[in-house]
């Protein structure tokens, strides 16, 4: 983990409000593992103090990039960032996706700009499987050529039917699972809204396969100090404990996660281990 003042190299609108921000950040870029994030300080945003976490889209050749949509106070302000601007970046942070199991069949599932968090995992995976991208409409489906270029089969779903199959991403998954028997056991790598994470997780649990889900919990410090982003995580003895999405996560195996409203199980108190990461 580093804290660096980096320089913006490129900041462009990709499509429909989605923007790509590329930074020159050699030492951070060199450390990035699939599914990790960075914590950005938006300069001059005087009355909104806190850093904002962003999934890392890509990290190569000394460059670090994020793909995001302008939705809140911070990201709206970011629209004005231009090449040459300085930016304070902390990262890389968190525990991301594992490498796909040998002999399995990796399946990526992304909702909205969730595919941004999956790109490095897609590249690093030795086996290339199927990627399901879902969004509200065609303008929300990003990076299909990039994933295809890595050797993945991309299947698109939109809620309005403007691109790919009409429906939600799990509809496409269900249809595919019913028609195909992939060689090797499917292993899911998932990033998107929590309803989608839960839905994919349920399918994986039912089928007895693994689903690695990247949680989008609100964060404050990003390094595990403030305990804002805690998630109920199942313990080996059937109880639960808080773990920090920013430190032990953001990626968890779906069986570990206890969602809000689930039958409550006994808790184990604050058994947070401080794993050290370089």
């Amino acid at each position: 983990m580093n804290l660096r003042d980096v320089t913006v190299i490129e900041h462009v609108e990709v499509q429909g409000g989605y923007r790509l921000l590329v930074m020159d950040a050699p030492d951070i870029a060199a450390q990035v593992q699939p599914g990790q994030f960075i914590h950005l300080q938006i300069p001059d945003l005087r009355d909104a103090l806190l850093r904002r976490p962003f999934s890392i889209y890509n990290a190569e050749n000394n460059r670090l990039s994020v793909l995001y949509k302008g939705v809140g106070v911070g990201t709206r302000w970011m629209a004005d960032l231009k090449p040459g601007d300085p930016l304070s970046v902390m990262g890389p942070l968190g525990h991301g996706f594992p490498i796909a199991e040998a002999g399995g069949y990796p399946v990526l599932v992304a909702g909205g700009y969730g595919m941004a968090a999956l790109y490095i995992a897609a590249r690093e995976s030795r086996q290339k499987g199927t990627a399901f991208f879902g969004g509200a409409s065609a303008g929300d489906i990003l990076c299909v050529p990039e994933f295809e270029a890595l050797g993945w089969e991309v299947r698109v779903t939109t809620e309005d039917g403007s691109l790919g199959m009409k429906g939600i991403v799990t509809d496409a998954m269900d249809e595919w699972l019913a028609q195909n028997r992939p060689e090797g056991e499917p292993e899911y790598f998932v990033c998107g809204p929590s309803g989608m994470l839960k839905a994919v997780g349920e399918r994986a649990m039912k089928a007895g396969t693994k689903a690695w889900i990247s949680l989008d919990n609100n964060m404050c410090c990003g390094v595990g100090a403030c305990l804002t982003c805690v998630q109920k995580i199942r313990t080996a003895d059937g109880a639960w404990e808080w773990q920090r999405a920013c430190r032990e996560g953001p990626v968890f195996e779906c069986r570990e996660v206890i969602w809000d409203g689930e039958e409550s199980v006994e808790h184990r108190t604050s058994n947070i281990e401080h794993r050290t990461k370089s």
């Binding site: 009355d47 403030c226 804002t228 982003c229």
Partner: peptide, 14 residues
């Protein structure tokens, strides 16, 4: 001690 449920923090003006 377990602490409170989430959400636990919220950004406000300044």
């Amino acid at each position: 001690t377990l602490g409170n449920m989430t959400p636990r923090t919220a950004e406000t003006r300044s």
